[in-house]
Design a protein around this nucleic acid. Structure first.
Lengths: 247, 247
DNA sequence: CGTGTTCTTGATGATCATCAAAGGTGGTGG
DNA sequence: CCACCACCTTTGATGATCATCAAGAACACG
């Protein structure tokens, strides 16, 4: 299970890819797909299409949960804050993923963009009434949520029981899996997150992450052709590190 | 958020407590409450009432997900296995909690009992057809799942960013919160898990957990009147450890 | 071209894992 | 009822992993 994007991916897979959104001209949000054409129009009339700059927040932890977002382009991190100001990244979200659905009144984490992005934003009350009309939509969210729960449990295993290098290996492989799920071809992966973001995701310091990257590079396991990109040259080695370095 | 039992607790809170199950004579499973009397009878006719011994498994990781369980009495741990045989405990479940709902075909983790237990077991297909008839039931599961997701994210923060003692403090406080939610009065908490179970939950070794318990005892923060019980004498100190020791 | 951010690398030390052994507790059967 | 045994817990000694502190290099951006 891929801790990075199981949630969004599930919707995407279940709903099909590559659809063109009648309203915003980009790939249809995972949310809309199970609706018939008339209702789809209805929903999309309500959905706003907004652009954000890198580092903007879609919402802060504790904000009133007024919207559900779908990333059309760009990447975001989901962050929980600690009392002392440090952060734990609880997940990353990519183009096509749904962000910010919660039945409670406030968001339990912040969503901050790593890149400039365009999002489809749907009013929360509108979605709730849609869910009442279309139980299939609710079912979709349940499936999505359980996938995400499973992914978070996987991440708990990684953070709780693996060495620094094994954690990074798990991260890189999940990043590759995430790209594969989005049908992104080619061996080179986009990696818009900084070493600090990765460290906050893996429960490490940025120095340790950097050293692990260096180690992988020196061993010829990965290549970084440019800033923000990686290529996995020895997946087998990364996999063995995860399975074996656990003891 | 309490990582121990948010899932079960939510259902319990939403559905009320202390109901007597017409079929099994014990507190009604959270699942059944939103149903009208006729349907409730219908469901309970299908539910089996089973007893297990301590250390029995309700199911193993990867088993076909044939049933949903509600703990009537007893405590269970939810466990993911690593390739080398070590475990990560992803949660604990107490009387009244629901265990083992997953939309996928197999359980993503094992559920092993810490104590002897009685459970209400409901066939998965039966539940699915019920959910089709009663969207409110599905909604219940969605709320429950998001609560559990939030709890798991909290646990990720604890395991990823806190010291050994702060992790144990967080565990003890969540145990107390869990007892409070179940309306268990009195200052002394049941703690049926071993040091090894706690270690596997917190991403530590059992020795480190034991040393932290000893440290708390010496400082007068906790008391263990007997095996399997704790009393928190200085919650304030435990809370400050969590908030402050994070840096 | 300069400035701020990110990344790398090194030196040092703290936290926690590991290895080891002994004391405690509960359960079982003689 | 006692004794034995398995399991759990505690405590100590040692060392590895990773955090911290520090400084310089590479890079992006204006």
């Amino acid at each position: 299970m891929n801790p990075l994007d199981a949630a969004g991916r599930l919707v995407r897979d279940a709903l099909g890819e590559g659809e063109i959104c009648g309203t915003c001209g980009s790939r249809v949000a995972g949310l809309c797909r199970p609706l018939d054409a008339a209702t789809l129009d209805d929903v999309l009339a309500e959905a706003e299409h907004v652009t954000f700059a890198a580092r903007d927040h879609l919402f802060q932890e504790g904000d009133k949960a007024g919207h559900v977002f779908t990333l059309v382009t760009g990447t975001a991190k989901l962050v929980r804050l600690l009392p002392d100001g440090r952060e734990q990244v609880v997940g990353f979200r990519f183009a096509g993923d749904v962000v910010g659905y919660t039945p409670s009144g406030t968001y339990p984490f912040a969503a901050q963009l790593l890149t400039a992005a365009t999002v489809c934003r749907l009013d929360r009350r509108r979605l709730d009434s849609l869910m009442r009309s279309y139980p299939a939509l609710e079912r979709r969210f349940l499936d999505l949520c359980i996938q995400e729960l499973t992914a978070t449990q996987d991440q708990l295993v990684t953070v709780g029981r693996r060495t620094a290098e094994a954690r990074l290996a798990a991260f890189l492989l999940s990043l590759a899996e995430s790209g594969r799920q989005r049908h992104l071809p080619g061996p080179v992966l986009d990696m818009p997150m900084t070493r600090a973001d990765i460290a906050d995701f893996l429960g490490l310091t940025l120095e340790t992450v950097s050293r692990s990257f260096t180690a992988f590079r020196r061993r010829g396991w990965i290549r970084e052709p440019s800033h923000g990109r990686v290529e996995l040259l020895q997946r087998q080695a990364l996999t063995e590190l995860i399975d074996g370095d656990a003891d």
